[in-house]
Amino acid sequence: MESQGVPKEAEAEGDGILKIGDMQLPGRLISDASEEIMLLWAIGQPCTARQNNFVKQTSNHLKLDACGHNLSIQQSPSSMNTSGVTGGVMWDSGIVLGKFLEHAVDCDLLNLRGKKCVELGSGCGLVGCIAALLGGNAILTDMPDRLRLLAKNVEENVRELDARGSASVRELTWGEDLDSDLLNPLPDYVLGSDVVYSEAIVHDLLTTLQGLCGNHTIIFISAELRNDAVLEYFLEFALKNFSVGCVDQGIWHPHYKSRRVVIFIMAKL
């Protein structure tokens, strides 16, 4: 039976099972932004957990075993000296999301084979590369000045003979018109890690998410728990047009969990 006041497309079922769109995963439905922030910070205590647990941002390469491959993701540590530029290095949220996708596929909770996956703010491109290796037809997107590093990592880590799917790189500025190859057909999955980092980008990000999402599209966003005000601002506006849930850490990859990271699942209302 549909819960009162909860859209049919998004229900919190018994035993902590969250239904968003066509997906059912362990988790909780989010209905109030401030309440969710209280849960994440008061109960999760992210500030007491180690930061950058899975990454080394001073290194030129990040090594990671995923999908039966030894991935080598090139980083640009010097880019961290430029204000507002964070996509030249990896963050824990990207590692967590990529390994979550791998684990969910291995556990038959998720099927990316033949599915169109668009990654927003790809940065170094780890998440999109993993999506391709899991069988997705991945389009990795970012700002123009970040495409060179992104394209190099795709070329080095997603080889045609090794990958079940495919990976390509596209320029995308949030809030601007979307190219036809992103829209036709609309994505099955939209992925993003560390894309909620400033109140200034929230409306453009949500505009792009709305443009990319059809009735069947599922969004996975992993966020670093740094600034409660920024994340609350994002959730407050996301809830106006999306069903939003928090994915239970019990189904994350067992070796890639962090109290400093949260994974949201979203679908258009």
Rank of each mutant, 00 (worst) to 15 (best):
residue 3 S to P: 01
residue 4 Q to I: 12
residue 4 Q to K: 12
residue 8 K to T: 11
residue 11 E to M: 13
residue 16 G to H: 11
residue 18 L to F: 08
residue 21 G to H: 09
residue 22 D to R: 14
residue 24 Q to T: 13
residue 25 L to H: 02
residue 27 G to I: 10
residue 29 L to Y: 09
residue 31 S to A: 02
residue 32 D to C: 09
residue 37 I to S: 00
residue 46 P to C: 09
residue 48 T to N: 10
residue 48 T to P: 00
residue 49 A to G: 10
residue 51 Q to S: 13
residue 60 N to W: 03
residue 61 H to P: 00
residue 64 L to Y: 02
residue 65 D to P: 00
residue 66 A to D: 03
residue 66 A to L: 09
residue 67 C to P: 05
residue 67 C to H: 03
residue 69 H to M: 12
residue 69 H to K: 14
residue 71 L to V: 05
residue 71 L to W: 07
residue 72 S to G: 02
residue 72 S to P: 00
residue 76 S to E: 14
residue 79 S to G: 11
residue 81 N to F: 07
residue 87 G to I: 08
residue 89 V to H: 05
residue 95 I to C: 09
residue 97 L to T: 04
residue 98 G to S: 10
residue 105 V to A: 15
residue 108 D to G: 10
residue 110 L to G: 04
residue 115 K to P: 02
residue 118 V to P: 00
residue 118 V to N: 02
residue 118 V to D: 01
residue 127 V to H: 04
residue 131 A to W: 06
residue 132 A to G: 12
residue 135 G to M: 08
residue 136 G to M: 07
residue 138 A to I: 09
residue 140 L to W: 02
residue 145 D to M: 11
residue 147 L to R: 04
residue 148 R to F: 11
residue 149 L to H: 03
residue 150 L to Y: 07
residue 150 L to P: 06
residue 154 V to I: 11
residue 162 D to A: 08
residue 167 A to M: 09
residue 168 S to L: 05
residue 176 E to S: 15
residue 185 P to G: 14
residue 198 S to V: 02
residue 202 V to N: 12
residue 202 V to A: 07
residue 205 L to P: 06
residue 207 T to N: 12
residue 210 Q to M: 14
residue 214 G to P: 08
residue 216 H to Q: 15
residue 217 T to R: 08
residue 223 A to M: 00
residue 224 E to K: 09
residue 226 R to C: 06
residue 228 D to W: 02
residue 229 A to T: 11
residue 229 A to G: 00
residue 230 V to Q: 03
residue 231 L to E: 00
residue 233 Y to P: 01
residue 240 K to T: 10
residue 242 F to Q: 04
residue 245 G to Q: 06
residue 245 G to I: 02
residue 245 G to Y: 01
residue 250 G to P: 01
residue 250 G to A: 10
residue 251 I to L: 09
residue 252 W to P: 01
residue 255 H to L: 15
residue 259 R to I: 01
residue 260 R to D: 04
residue 261 V to Y: 06
residue 261 V to L: 07
residue 261 V to R: 00
